[in-house]
Write a protein that binds this DNA or RNA. Structure first.
Lengths: 112, 112
DNA sequence: ATCTCCGTGCAACCGATGGTTGCGCATGAC
DNA sequence: GTCATGCGCAACCATCGGTTGCACGGAGAT
C-alpha cells in the first residue's frame, strides 16, 4: 500500500535535522542557512545541504535577497507530505485493528 | 515541538525498505529474513540488517523457531510510531493553518 | 550415524549521505 | 576603497544501505 513515488518525500522528512529545519521555518516564517544554523547543533554548511535536498523535493523554495538566500516552506508541498504521513499511519492502523479483531475472535472461540 | 527521543523511531520508519518490511509483516502476520526477501528487491542480508534495526527500536521482535528466525510486529510499539506520525503531522497542519489565516487577514486589510 | 540441504550469521567491501573544516568569492556597509 | 559577512565549493571522515562470499548449525533423508 505504501506509494513508491513518494519515497523522496519520506526520506526528506525522515531526517531529524530536516524536520527541525521545517519546524524553524514554519515558526519564524523563513530564514537563511546561517540564521537557521544558529538554532541547530550543526554547521551552516550542513544546514545548507539539508536546505538543498528540501528544495529538490519542493518542500521549501529559496529567494535571493541581497547577498542573503532566504528560504521559505512551500505550504502546498508540506501539506502533501502531511497527507502522506496520515495515509501510511491510517493503513497501519487499519492492519493493527484487523489483527486485534482476529485476536479477539480467537479469544472468543476459545472461551466457548 | 518535535520530540528528540523518538528520532530513532523516525529514522527506523523513514527507510522505504523498512516500511515495506512492516507492511509485509503486517499482511502475512510475520515472516523470516528469507521469506521476506523474496517479496523485496534486496538480498536476504539486507533484509536481516533492516530487521535488526527494527528489532533494536522495538518495532518487531524475533522468536527462534527450529532453524528459522521468525519476526513479528510489536503492535504496541507500531501504534506508538503511528501516533508519532500523527502528532508531527498535526503540528505542521496547525502551523500551516495559522499561516493561511494570517495571509487571509493581510488580504482582508489590503482589500479595505 | 552421516550426509546433505537450507536458513542464519559474520566479515569485507562499495556507493551515498550527513557532518565537518577550510578556502575563495561577492556583495552590502563603512 | 576597504572591510566583513554570508555564501558556495571542495576535500575529507563516519555511518548506513546494499552487495558478495563464506562458515556454521539444525532438520530431514539414506
Amino acid at each position: 500500500m505504501t506509494a513508491a513515488i513518494d519515497d523522496d518525500l519520506w526520506s526528506a522528512i525522515g531526517d531529524p535535522t530536516r524536520r527541525r529545519l521545517l519546524d524553524l521555518l514554519l515558526a519564524d516564517g523563513g530564514g537563511t542557512a546561517t540564521t537557521l544554523s544558529d538554532h541547530l547543533p550543526v554547521t551552516r554548511q550542513a544546514v545548507a545541504k539539508h536546505l538543498g535536498v528540501l528544495d529538490r523535493v519542493g518542500l521549501v523554495h529559496a529567494t535571493p535577497a541581497g547577498r542573503e538566500r532566504r528560504y521559505e516552506v512551500d505550504e502546498v508541498q508540506l501539506a502533501r507530505a502531511v497527507a502522506q504521513l496520515a495515509s501510511v499511519g491510517a493503513a497501519w492502523n487499519a492492519r493493527l485493528l484487523r489483527i486485534k479483531r482476529i485476536a479477539e475472535a480467537i479469544q472468543r472461540t476459545r472461551e466457548n
